[in-house]
Write a protein that binds this DNA or RNA. Structure first.
Lengths: 120, 120
DNA sequence: TCAATGCTACAATAATTATTGAATTATTCA
DNA sequence: TGAATAATTCAATAATTATTGTAGCATTGA
């Protein structure tokens, strides 16, 4: 992940409403959520939702798909993965033994194993 | 981790200079880095460094210790762990099978195993 | 085609954040 | 104590970000 994109993603998440929207979308998973539902879940107006969700899109954290007169938003799983990887990839500068259990392996999802070494 | 602190930490990292300072401190580990070294590593002045490093402290990502006329900064490992945990804890809403390899287990440090099952 | 619905774009304003230089505080050493 | 060094505080300015209302576009269904 590029530093510029990482900063954009961090900035996107560093805002009350956007963080709430993001977490809502994370929970919704593949199903996704329409713009209107997102707006009412966050207690914000349509204009404000549009502004914030666009920031999340621009940061590569969310995708959009039109469904008739609705627009459905979904978590961009690759984008989320990229950010998490970026935040943890430099820890210990390649010397895991220096920091111990820095990354909370047990708090996320996915199998309990290492991924191939070419993950960035 | 409290949402307010998470936002503060995300905002702290969502800035070019602070992200560079943070990563420098991550690499430096327990040794830490003095303010002056940090400033020149980031190519910024003393005033600017003071401003940015204070933001990182306020976000619980960095600690400070005076050493004579120097001040040494170190990564706050607990703070970093807390943020990483917060960002991944809600993924899949407790249903790991829904999202697959969302969390980049292989990119961080620490042992390849789950932490106790009562992590949420 | 017209009205209604869902959402986005634009513009104005308010609020927050970053940068810079000058002054200030803390420490060391002669 | 006084000079030098390391870092912070303060104030002014510039830049970025958030909010709100209004207008506009896309889609549906009568």
């Amino acid at each position: 992940m590029d530093e510029t994109i990482a900063i954009r993603a961090l900035a996107a998440l560093a805002q009350e409403h956007r963080l709430a929207l993001f977490r809502h979308l994370v929970r919704a998973g593949r199903t996704g959520v329409t713009a209107g539902e997102l707006a009412s879940s966050a207690g914000i107006g349509a204009t404000s939702l549009s502004f914030h969700v666009k920031e999340l899109e621009r940061a590569g954290l969310v995708t959009q798909q039109r469904e008739g007169r609705f627009i459905r938003y979904r978590l961009d799983v690759q984008g989320m993965r990229g950010l998490l990887a970026f935040l943890s990839e430099d820890c210990c500068d390649g010397q895991p033994e220096l920091c111990g259990d820095l990354v909370p392996l047990g708090s996320g999802c996915g199998p309990t194993r290492r991924i191939s070494s070419n993950d960035q």
